[in-house]
Design a protein around this nucleic acid. Structure first.
Length: 984
DNA sequence: AGGTTGACATA
DNA sequence: GTATGTCAACCTT
């Protein structure tokens, strides 16, 4: 073990007692063996070892051990015979679980540590101290106050029941004393459960106050006569010796002679078959499924371990804990875990490691034939119920809906398909209609399960926590079914799995993935519903045709999942998927479903005004130009300006036409030409009109009267989400004209809109990633970052700095984030390329760490083909190896930008994932409506606004924690108003 | 009818 | 210099 490593020590004995009392009792179905606490233990260990970023600890352990009490007789009994003397026997149905929990530990391939004469707490204290000695961090998995004395800079605790980390501040908050004073505090208060005497009449509050007053126990005892309260003073004087004994009882021994060293605790990957074998024996179906998914093992092919439960005197050890230590059959009871030999080996060609499994699955998938003739069409409720039962038995089912619209807010359910395993798939038509014989085309096709019956049959499966639903772009189905009152869970999304694996490597569309991974061309949707004037909604598609199309969809989704999910494990990306990607689906679906209010009248008035002003400008333009032409045609405009009128032409576009960008026209306007200014103004007006004032009202939903955007989770290589139909991430803000459109986004009556945005999040992320002292200091001090940059670069004091100097520094800062080039900076600042090059040179002299970051990022991307965010998300740029210098340079800039943009995107994702629970916890009814990259927009009742603002700020500002402890603070500005413009 | 281009809105 | 999405015009099918 070395510096930077992280040791997890689970207080196994403490956990089992707590889990037994906190969790609902549970018995093994087949024979009634009590297993509730063991399940709790297994779930916790799985979570901690598999995806530690999923917990409040937020750290992946490098070393891991579970510590148990061995015997109730320890050295403490020699100090004080009564120690733990009043301990009662554990409940009947807990007794067999002591042994099972040790078996579980071994099944997880984890060290199972205990020692005669010492409590688990002493072993934990000793290992934590050893870890500290080599510079490693320790997290103790326990919430026992007896262990809090160990908390310090390198040691923290984690309460697995409450998913809460306990550090120095938490100890102080709870007990009123810092961890190092916990021993003195406990010496005074004593402990009735362990029969530690303490001082009668002194509880935690008084003890904390006394320690605060006197500093420590010895001083307190020496100066007890100074205590004012008569009874208290007397009690302390009388019981001084008891307090001293108590102190020795609660003081943990951190020099226990150990058998196992820290290096024996290096965390091993789980052995899927071995673990599943154990979990199956205890009939933990849900966890078995999760473990199977994560390890890529095939549970159906693994036999359950035969478990023996020893409860009598034949078991070894003098104490109850040990009395009930059962063991895996045929396995000697060991102090240490067995090697990684699986007790059951996987059959067939399934690989033993995630990587080989991923490979074999991929090969098998391409080789497999897809036989559409085997697809079934379910026409009656009994058959559907049989399929649902089969799906429940299987534990995984691919599911997809067929509807009348690509927009889940408008779509009506027409049918759905299921796939239980490759080739075993069916379609359930429920609302197909026939156009034959009826000119209005309203006839319901015969032999369909009724809508209500079908939903009643499939609904329980969709929300069954032990059945994994597989889909592609689940957000669509989730929102559709959410409208029908069903929230799908748990689920996997092949689109998102592909995105996590391959962001930057092409499309994640279903068709693309089926082709790429299964070598199969899907039936094009167009071939089913037609196009142009022949386009029909899905309810008018013939059921036979619909069956083939829809069933193939589920079948392929199942096959795709079987290929992609093991790749996730093999690439170590499970936690990115489960932490950053999948949980966002319900969050975004709900946001889309809520929509936002837009003032139709206001937009209409604005549209009329814009039309008038544009028309007036058109007349002026024709007059100045001397002819009528299509102003909106860059080709015609370029020919008139630079051809016929002979204005000094700037550059040409790649297709050889005159470029007429706003920048060029602005420059011409500055030189005194009349027409370019008018064109720029006309473009602004018509842009605002066509894209916003005219288009937005058409998106107002007929029933909700609100605008519902659609968020794309898998459309950017960096991890940002995008918004479309309508795009609410590009509503104008920079110009006064544009902001008027923003004022049309309003809160419902009695509510306010709250806008909360991160200040300079990308520069802060850059300061963290590249570790730039001046930048982290500047952000810590809260100074104007652009002015600081200017001051550093040009030697100009911040006080009285000319705005132009600051503007240039600001452009450079942005340029840095974008992977700066002299060409781009020169363009942005309208300065010669040489001058821009000088700026960049000077910048790198002042901030050499940035150049280092850029060079390292490029080199690493060339080497690996991808870059990573601080949370481990990957963005691929294979073209960075291109031989085309321009193309290569472009990819280099993108690769430099991606970790910055992507880390910021991950941070706000984390905030969004936590937000709803945080608001609910604070009993607030604010609803998250929009995300604009570094901004979240909420709607909240007026009277809750003041209480909502700090909750929103805290969740956003703390979003990186605890997975990443940023070197800079995150600043969040939040405001409420009646409309979006004033709130922002 | 569908795809591409140039322009421009946002972070 | 990064990342998007939408519009009108224009070209191809």
């Amino acid at each position: 073990m070395k510096k930077g490593d992280h040791l997890f020590l689970v207080d196994g004995s403490g956990y089992i007692f707590r889990a037994y009392h906190a969790l609902p009792p549970l018995n093994r179905k087949s024979d009634g063996l009590p297993i509730g606490a063991v399940l709790g233990f297994c779930n916790m260990v799985w979570k901690l070892t598999q995806d530690a970023r999923n917990t409040d600890v937020g750290i992946v352990p490098t070393h891991f051990a579970v510590i148990f009490d061995y015997s109730s007789k320890t050295f403490r009994n020699e100090l004080y015979a009564e120690y733990k003397a009043n301990r009662t026997a554990p409940p009947e149905d807990l007794i067999p679980q002591f042994g099972l929990i040790r078996q579980a530990t071994r099944a997880f391939n984890l060290p199972c540590i205990e020692m005669d004469g010492f409590e688990a707490d002493d072993l934990i204290a000793t290992y934590a101290r050893l870890a500290c000695d080599v510079g490693a961090d320790t997290t103790i998995i326990s919430s026992d106050k007896d262990l809090m004395q160990l908390v310090g800079p390198t040691v923290s605790m984690y309460d697995p029941m409450k998913d809460r980390q306990i550090g120095v501040p938490e100890v102080i908050e709870k007990w009123g004393v810092p961890p190092e004073k916990m021993i003195d505090l406990q010496a005074l208060t004593g402990d009735s459960i362990d029969n530690v005497p303490g001082v009668p009449g002194i509880g935690p509050k008084t003890a904390a106050q006394l320690i605060e007053q006197f500093g420590d126990l010895d001083t307190l005892l020496a100066r007890a006569s100074e205590i004012k309260q008569d009874k208290r003073r007397q009690s302390i004087i009388d019981n001084a010796e008891k307090a001293r004994i108590s102190r020795e009882l609660v003081r943990l021994k951190n020099d226990v002679p150990l058998v196992d060293g820290l290096d024996d605790f290096a965390l091993q990957p789980p052995n899927g078959p071995k673990l599943i074998s154990f979990l199956k024996a205890l009939e933990f179906s849900s966890l078995t499924r999760r473990v199977a998914e994560a390890t890529g093992a095939e549970p159906n092919e693994i036999e359950a371990t035969r478990i023996t439960v020893q409860t009598g005197a034949e078991a070894h050890g003098p104490d109850l804990d040990a009395l009930v230590s059962g063991s895996l059959e045929g396995e000697a009871r060991a102090q240490r875990p067995e090697g990684t030999q699986p007790s059951v080996t996987p059959s067939r060609a399934e690989g033993a490691t995630p990587a080989t499994l991923a490979k074999s699955r991929a090969e098998a998938a391409v080789a497999a034939k897809i036989d559409r003739s085997k697809y079934e069409c379910i026409r009656d409720i009994a058959t559907l119920q049989a399929w649902v039962a089969e799906a429940r038995e299987a534990g995984t089912v691919a599911f997809r809906t067929e509807t009348t619209s690509l927009d889940p807010m408008l779509a009506e359910l027409v049918g759905f398909s299921l796939a239980i395993r490759p080739g075993r798939a069916a379609y359930v038509p429920i609302a197909h209609r026939s156009s034959e014989g009826d000119l209005l085309g309203g006839g319901r096709s015969p032999n369909q399960v009724s809508f209500d019956e079908a939903l009643a049959a499939i609904g329980p499966l969709l929300i069954d926590p032990s059945v994994l639903k597989i889909g592609h772009n689940v957000k669509y189905d989730w929102l559709l079914l959410h409208r029908l009152g069903l929230d799908i869970a748990p689920f996997d999304d092949t689109m998102l799995i592909s995105y996590v694996l391959d962001a930057g490597n092409g499309s994640h569309a279903f068709e693309t993935l089926a082709e790429r991974w299964l070598g199969h061309a899907v039936i094009p949707f167009k071939d089913v519903v037609g196009s142009g004037r022949n386009l029909v909604t899905f309810d008018f598609v013939e059921i036979e045709r619909a069956t083939t199309y829809a069933t193939e969809g589920s079948d392929l989704a199942m096959r795709l999942w079987r290929v992609l999910k093991p790749r996730l494990v093999a690439n170590g990306l499970t936690s990115v998927y489960e932490r950053l990607e999948r949980p966002l689906v319900p969050v975004l679906a709900r946001m889309e479903g809520r929509g936002i209010s837009v003032d139709r009248q206001m937009l209409s008035r604005l549209s009329g005004e814009l039309a008038q002003r544009a028309a007036a400008l058109e007349d002026e333009i024709y007059t100045v130009a001397g002819e009528r032409f299509t102003i909106g045609s860059p080709k015609q405009l370029g020919d008139i300006l630079f051809g016929r009128m002979g204005l000094p032409g700037g550059s040409k576009t790649k297709s050889g036409q005159w470029s007429t960008t706003a920048q060029i026209l602005e420059e011409l306007a500055a030189e005194g030409y009349e027409l370019p200014r008018k064109i720029v103004d006309w473009r602004q007006l018509t842009k605002l009109k066509s894209t916003y004032t005219d288009a937005l009202p058409d998106y107002i939903h007929p029933e909700t009267k609100r605008v519902h955007t659609s968020y794309a989770l898998a459309s950017t290589p960096t991890g940002r989400i995008s918004s479309s139909e309508p795009n609410l991430q590009n509503i104008p803000i920079r110009t006064a004209e544009g902001r008027r459109i923003r004022t049309a986004f309003i809160a419902e009556k009695g509510n306010k809109l709250i806008s909360a945005d991160y200040s300079q999040i990308e520069l802060r992320v850059l300061a963290h990633i590249a570790d730039i002292p001046q930048l982290t200091q500047a952000f810590a001090d809260g100074v104007d970052i652009h002015a600081m940059t200017a001051s550093e670069m040009f030697g100009v004091p911040v006080e009285g700095m000319p705005s132009e100097v600051r503007r240039r520094a600001k452009a450079i800062n942005f340029g840095i984030i974008y992977g700066i080039s002299a060409f781009g900076l020169a363009n942005q600042l309208s300065i010669p390329r040489e001058e821009a090059g000088d700026y960049i040179k000077r910048y790198f002299e002042r901030f050499p760490g940035i150049r280092d970051y850029m060079e390292q990022t490029k080199a690493s991307c060339r080497d690996k083909g991808y870059v990573e965010t601080i949370f481990g998300r990957r963005a691929h740029y294979p073209e960075i190896r291109s031989s085309n210098p321009q193309h290569r340079a472009f990819n280099e800039r993108a690769a430099i930008n991606a970790p910055i943009q992507g880390s910021a995107a991950d941070i706000i994702r984390r905030a969004m994932i936590r937000m709803d629970a945080a608001l609910a916890e604070a009993k607030l009814s604010a609803r998250m409506l929009l995300q604009v990259h570094d901004e979240l927009v909420f709607e909240a009742p007026e009277e809750e606004v003041e209480a909502t603002l700090p909750v929103v700020r805290e969740v956003m500002a703390g979003a990186a924690m605890p997975a990443v402890n940023l070197a800079v603070p995150l600043q969040v500005d939040a405001r409420a108003a009646d409309n979006w413009d004033e709130a922002h």
